[in-house]
Design a protein around this nucleic acid. Structure first.
Length: 510
RNA sequence: GGGCUCCUAGCUCAAUUGGCAGAGCAACGGCCUUUUAAGCCGUGGGUUCUGGGUUCGAGUCCCAGGGGGCUCACCA
């Protein structure tokens, strides 16, 4: 059994602790002990062992528990160690007298390291101080850890280390696991809610020849055999609405979107989205469903409707506040955007009031920037802003009484946009015109504008019933329920720049 | 992309005005059969992110680069 020649395990490259652990592993092999056996005869998870003892039926029967050694306390001829598996942790007690000849001194004290996985066999008992423990008569190695564990008390703090090596974060910082259990519970509750209400879960293409459904720049990729450029989807919207056309009246998808844009505390290049579409519903129906759905999730995850986020107590009980966007911006800035019918006059008014509008913005984007800067951060309690400018909503249905507005809302909690929804535009002629407008913008510098999706127009031409559509970021929702202030804490492997192993040498070359 | 800021032992963190690079945990050696962040005695461990520069002397000051964090811009 020769070891590979690779710098990774070259002792010359290793810190002394890792070197010592590899040495211990070799000594195990030399003693005829397999450091990486194929299986363990585990009889109980740690939680099951505790239940067994609590039931009073444990008696003197031997159990075998297995897990990672988190702490060791050697008291001479007797040792205590804390064993941890996915269900909890349990103390094991070793006495020199209870173990095979020389095992205690030569193997346990010398070759076992913190972080190793072992199986421990023996009866359950209570120590003098009342700690449930296994009185160990036999220890089996399950997996040797060749790297030292982080600090047993402080864990690992450096965010870069935590995100790049999330496995270390998870093993050293137990609360992190809880975040991802909560995240799973949220997704489970959403599925339950929608499934119970007759929604069909589907999966639509991630690789798309034409991207759309959101204002964002895509990632581009290429299919070699077909000589075809493809995009990673930025939304599911246009595919899900094709399914509405096809007669699937209630449909949803939970999956990954990819947007080629900046990274921030609430933006990751790939993120998880829920979208649902409901035929014969409008945005008012969707609003009611949204607040009920999130309240349902809150009940499932927390048992109630109250959450605390960064010190703010937030009440998710329906109904949520509904404020027309126009009113919200008027209240926050004193600007009634309806009084300024084009970008030039609105921008002028904004400048008059001391704002600094982006000169490239069209009217809709100016309105949106006012909302994002002066309204959104203050929407701590759940709030729907309703009735948006048509300019920024190329897929939403116009309001019957105001051609400049669409039937759209966004939901805000804790100063963050968590969802976006509207009455879907189902007039294929209107939709085509909007695509043409977008395409014009795209060719004039707006790199987030939509390309024309002719097949989507084709689909609408077969007739799509009045439909309410909805999209929500699962990551942001998880931030709320786990009281985290950055999206990186709720994504297991958030995007980070890769570390170049090449020194700066190449930088100066021409 | 701009501004600010951080990067020191396996981990968590110190290091005065530029003056021998330290502690706790972890590791190694010893004592210890009821500990639970065990304790006690002793020992080793550093490319101070990388590369230049200033200086008698650089973790510290300057320049360039890499990575992280915050923030602004951007991101409906």
């Amino acid at each position: 059994m020769s070891e590979p020649t690779h710098p990774f395990f070259d002792p010359a490259n290793l810190p002394d602790q890792a070197r010592g652990r590899i040495e211990n592993m070799r000594n195990l092999l030399a003693a005829g002990i397999d450091p990486y056996p194929a299986r363990v005869r585990r009889t109980h998870t740690i939680a099951q062992a505790r239940e067994l003892f609590d039931s009073g039926n444990a008696g003197d029967a031997y159990v075998i528990v297995a897990g990672r050694i988190k702490r060791i306390r050697i008291m001479g001829k007797m040792s205590f160690a804390d064993l941890e598996d996915g269900s909890g942790s349990l103390q094991i007690v070793l006495r020199k007298d209870n173990l095979p000849e020389n095992f205690y001194d030569e193997v346990w004290k010398k070759l076992v390291d913190l972080g190793d996985f072992v199986g421990a066999m023996g009866p359950l008992f209570l120590t003098k101080t009342g700690e449930l423990s296994v009185e160990v008569h036999e220890i089996q190695f399950l997996s040797k850890a060749l790297k030292p564990m982080p600090d047993k008390w402080h864990g690992v703090r450096d965010p870069e280390k935590r995100y790049r090596r999330r496995y270390v974060d998870l093993m050293a910082n137990p609360p992190v696991r809880e975040v991802f259990r909560t995240r799973a519970a949220i997704v489970r509750a959403l599925r339950q809610y929608l499934d119970d209400d007759g929604f069909l879960e589907v999966e639509t293409p991630i690789l798309q020849p034409i991207y759309g459904g959101a204002a964002a720049r895509p990632f581009t990729t290429h299919h070699n055999q077909l000589h075809q450029d493809l995009y990673l989807r930025i939304s599911f919207e246009l595919y899900l609405k094709r399914l509405i056309v096809g007669g699937i009246d209630r449909v949803y998808e939970i999956g990954r979107d990819f947007r080629n844009e900046g990274v921030s505390f609430k933006h990751n290049p790939e993120f998880t989205q829920l979208e649902f579409y409901e035929a014969y519903a409008d945005y008012q129906d969707v609003m009611r469903r949204t607040e009920n759905m999130i309240a349902y999730v809150a009940e499932k995850v927390t048992g109630g409707h109250m959450i605390t986020w960064q010190g703010n107590d937030i009440d998710l009980t329906p109904p949520w506040r509904r404020i027309p966007l126009r009113q919200a911006i008027l209240d926050a800035t004193g600007i009634d955007y309806e009084a300024y019918q084009d970008a030039e006059s609105l921008a002028a008014e904004m400048r008059r009031r001391g704002h600094d509008p982006d000169p490239k913005s069209n009217w809709g984007k100016l309105v949106d920037s006012l909302m994002a800067k002066y309204v959104e951060p203050n929407l701590i309690q759940p709030t729907f802003l309703i009735d948006y400018p048509r300019d920024v909503s190329p897929l939403a249905k116009g309001s019957p009484d105001d051609p400049r507005q669409v039937e759209r809302f966004e939901g805000f909690i804790a100063g963050m946009e968590v969802c976006n929804a509207f009455s879907e535009l189902n007039d294929p002629i209107d939709q085509l015109q909007r695509f043409i407008d977008e395409n014009y913008r795209a060719r004039h510098g707006d790199d987030e504008a939509h390309p024309i999706d002719e097949d989507y127009i084709e689909a609408l031409s077969y007739g799509m019933p009045p439909t309410g559509g909805f999209g929500m970021g699962i990551d942001r929702l998880t931030m709320l329920f786990t009281d985290k202030d950055t999206i990186r804490e709720v994504i297991l492997f958030p995007h980070l720049r890769s570390v170049k192993d090449e020194p700066a040498e190449t930088a100066d070359e021409e």
